[in-house]
Amino acid sequence: MQIPTMAEAAAAGTEVEILFWVGCAGSFDARAQRITRAFSTILTKAGVSFAILGNEEMCTGDPARRAGNEFVFQMLALQNINTLNTYGVKKVVTACPHCFNTLKNEYPVLGGSYEVIHHTQFINELLASGRLKIEGGAYKGKKITYHDSCYLGRVNGEYEAPRNIIRTLDADLSELKRSRAGGLCCGAGGAQMFKEDEPGNKRINLERAEEILENGSAVVVANCPFCITMLTDGLKAKDKQDDVMVLDISEMIIGTV
């Protein structure tokens, strides 16, 4: 598989269709790297030419901004925008809803305007246009549930694309009690991922894990590497990590393409 960096693609004089924005979790976190590989494989199988920024990519700055540190946010954002504009990037796809939100909604004000697409939306488009073909069956009739991430769902209003993919797989989508606009956060957003919880009765991911267990599905599908970490930890705390699989949408379809 060939995954060039933008620098390499530019040196070779090749135009790429999309820039795959990998993000910190997708680049470094062992669990999220599996999502990165799965999505790269999907792109390759669909014949989408893409590149990454590689070492030139930096955190979008989302957790710093939401923690209140505008200096660090601006430092990262302005450098990223400089890099993206240097390569003349037009279309960005990312598997992280936090990167997605910041690139899509916050960079334009700073001078970086691109078409930004979340990977669930992109996969959905690939399926609709027939560029990506999946064989149903593996999940046919299986009860699967879906966790809306805050930054794809409530913040950016995308509820349908991921659900559409799950339906395309012939799976039996069973909604959680709190879903769509009423979805419950996994507990990671707003830079909570990087600090201990404030004092309380329980961790937020535990509350969500209990809801997933109540739903009784053997698979919970998510669209965010941080949600996936949080839900996995929550299920582990309930000692149910072997009963419920936590998967990204791209991992779910990787076996079926």
């Binding site: 955190c59 710093a64 923690a67 990262l76």
Partner: peptide, 16 residues
Amino acid sequence: EWVPMFTAMENGGCVW
């Protein structure tokens, strides 16, 4: 706990 995160972002461009 946010301080190491800020430092990592500032110096290495990554949250960790």
